[in-house]
């Protein structure tokens, strides 16, 4: 059993909040640069240039990439041989989010009650997903998820006999429905299988891969490539002004599911994909 001060989690989460929001990760920037080379629409090219320029300003001046600094979605892999001391896991994470959003001058975007809409004031509570894993390390991933793209996400319970084409149509329709609204070029996270609850989670986890990194299953890799091509043929383009670049990636995660079910979830992500991770070892 290894004792770890809960404060270490707080400090790590605080740093990740600021890092994710001000420093667009290299994989996204590389994908944007690649898209700029392929894009032929003048408007599309101009928007991609602005997105890249914005990332440079944000990094240099430590300004948030986007004013919607998101819901803090925290993915924890907690080693089963770790014993936290001096606080609880949830408190430590929320304290980190609170400090990070305060010190980093990030926008507080969480309403404490969905109907009364009072702002919590410090962007807590975070959404926390915890997995217990072997070992004595703590891996922390932080996705700062904007509201606009989240609003365009969708879930559908298919029949187990539904065809691959029907699933494909649902994915493409979801992107089409997001249209210009959710800040294209998108990253499209797709979950297939599991339950009503797990399918949404795996769709979100699909977003955590580095852009350009495909599934570990060979047949899924092929499907991801085909879907990306089809999505980009929609012509929505950067900011919805037309072009070849509607998405930077389509990532699919699958899970076993009930013989009666075939859940599919599509989690839309904007080009301002803010994800950072670290390990406490």
């Amino acid at each position: 059993m290894r004792e770890i001060e809960a404060k270490k989690i707080t400090d790590a989460v605080k740093t990740l909040c600021i890092e994710a929001n001000t420093n667009l990760s290299a994989d996204v920037e590389e994908a944007l640069n690649k898209a700029l080379k392929n894009e032929t629409s003048p408007n599309g090219r101009e928007i991609i240039r602005q997105i890249i320029q914005n990332a440079e300003i944000a990094r240099k001046e430590k300004l948030p990439i986007c004013q919607d600094t998101g819901t803090a979605v925290v993915f924890l892999q907690l080693g089963q041989d770790v014993r936290l001391i001096n606080s609880t896991l949830t408190e430590a994470v929320n304290e980190g989010v609170s400090l990070g959003y305060d010190k980093g001058l990030l926008r507080k975007s969480i309403a404490l009650d969905p109907l009364r809409r009072k702002n919590s004031g410090d962007n807590t509570p975070a959404v926390i997903h915890t997995e217990i894993v072997p070992g004595d390390n703590i891996r922390i991933g932080l996705l700062c998820k904007g509201g606009g793209a989240e609003n365009k996400s969708a879930i559908k319970m298919f029949k187990p006999t539904s065809s691959k084409e029907e699933i494909e149509q649902f994915i493409i329709e979801t992107v089409k429905n997001a249209g210009p609204d959710a800040c294209p070029p998108y990253i499209v996270g797709v979950g297939i299988g599991g339950n009503f609850d797990t399918v949404a989670l795996i769709a979100k986890k699909a977003l955590l891969r580095r852009v350009g990194q495909h599934s570990s299953a060979m047949d899924t890799v092929k499907w991801e490539k085909e879907l990306l091509e089809k999505v980009n043929k929609l012509g929505i383009g950067p900011m919805g002004l037309g072009g070849k670049t509607t998405a930077l990636a389509v990532n699919i995660e699958t899970r076993p599911c009930h013989i009666s079910s075939l859940p599919v979830a599509v989690n839309m992500e904007c080009h301002a994909h803010r994800y950072a991770e670290t390990t406490i070892s």
Partner: peptide, 13 residues
């Protein structure tokens, strides 16, 4: 009118 979403640092200038 539209402005690009997610270029908020640039627009602040």
């Amino acid at each position: 009118l539209v402005v690009p979403g997610g270029v908020a640092a640039l627009l602040s200038k």
